[in-house]
């Protein structure tokens, strides 16, 4: 399972991870090696076996919609790298 340079770039783009040429080469090799080790799973018979998404049986947890105190706007914005008054400041989305 050798990942091509294009595949590495494709995954990096999906993950929004910037990469240097060195990274592409380095991660490409390591990921190929790791994926090769995962090939063992192909030989396991899982016919008729349901997937496990999580280990306990809790599902569809509901609660009453009760109004309760939440973080203030100031607290929510306190860690923002850039803010503008009561907003997070972001770069233009439309280019």
């Amino acid at each position: 399972m050798k990942l091509s340079r294009e595949e590495v770039l494709h995954i990096a783009a999906l993950a929004k991870l910037g990469m240097t040429e060195d990274d592409i080469h380095h991660f490409g090799g390591q990921l190929s090696n790791i994926l090769e080790n995962f090939e063992v799973l192909k030989g396991v018979d899982t016919e008729g076996i349901q997937p496990t998404a999580q280990a306990n049986s809790v599902c569809n947890v509901m609660r009453d919609d009760v109004i309760a105190p939440s973080l203030s706007q100031e607290e929510v914005l306190a860690n923002a790298p850039k803010r503008d008054g009561e907003f997070f400041r972001i770069r233009p989305v439309m280019e």
């Binding site: 799973l41 192909k42 396991v44 899982t46 076996i49 349901q50 997937p51 496990t52 998404a53």
Partner: peptide, 15 residues
């Protein structure tokens, strides 16, 4: 299917 779903099924076997 080949990776994530397969891993989840083997997860069931381990459990």
């Amino acid at each position: 299917d080949a990776y994530y779903l397969k891993a989840q099924k083997v997860r069931t076997l381990i459990r």
